[in-house]
């Protein structure tokens, strides 16, 4: 038995609440460990001292007042916030995943050239708003992406020639 376990079980040992095997194990440990033995003597001394103190009569309605205070501190939320969010989240995630999954399946069924067109269209939709944030940074971002697919049609750096942008 390790010292951490022995210290935790001392209280139950003093109250005779330990099972026989654990009791024996703890007693064997107390015989060989001076720190735990000292801790046991301190606890046993405290317990004996407590028994010598006079019994105190609790005030009237002590139990009721204590329970009322406990109920006041335990702010267990009931209603909308405990029952609605998780099912709503599950429904929304199912809807989103069904869209993403069906979209992915349809895209992967396409030819590579067609997939590239889809990627270009999606990229165009995604970056359309970003040029208002910074003209220079937008150009840098767009140029990097247009090295891969020059079909964005919105980058001011490039000349327009038919459907494709060339540098």
């Amino acid at each position: 038995m390790k010292c951490d376990d022995a210290i935790k079980k001392l209280s139950a040992y003093l109250d005779n609440e330990l099972k026989d095997n654990l009791r024996t194990e703890l007693e064997n440990h107390l015989k060989i460990c001076p720190d735990c033995s000292r801790e046991h003597e301190t606890l046993a001394g405290n317990a004996k001292f407590m028994l010598t103190l006079p019994e105190i009569e609790p005030s009237p309605y002590f139990i009721q007042q204590t329970l009322a205070k406990i109920r006041k501190t335990e702010r267990r939320e009931k209603g909308f916030f405990t029952w609605v969010p998780v099912p709503a989240m599950a429904v929304l995630i199912l809807v989103l995943l069904s869209y993403f999954l069906s979209f992915s399946i349809k895209v992967f069924a396409l030819e590579p050239e067609s997939r590239k067109k889809i990627a270009g269209h999606a990229f165009e939709s995604a970056v359309k708003g970003s040029h208002v944030l910074g003209h220079v940074s937008f150009k840098k971002f767009c140029k990097r992406s247009c090295d891969i697919l020059c079909e964005c049609k919105i980058c001011p750096m490039y000349q327009n020639k038919g459907d494709k942008m060339i540098r």
């Binding site: 969010p85 709503a88 989240m89 929304l92 995630i93 809807v95 989103l96 869209y99 993403f100 069906s102 979209f103 349809k106 895209v107 396409l110 067609s114 067109k117 889809i118 269209h121 999606a122 939709s125």
Partner: peptide
């Protein structure tokens, strides 16, 4: 968290049909 999921769902419902048409 709920607001984000609702916004994402609304955007998906709005834009995915166009993407499906494109496909």
């Amino acid at each position: 968290g709920l607001l984000y999921l609702v916004v994402l769902t609304v955007v998906s419902i709005k834009y995915f049909p166009e993407m499906f048409k494109l496909i």
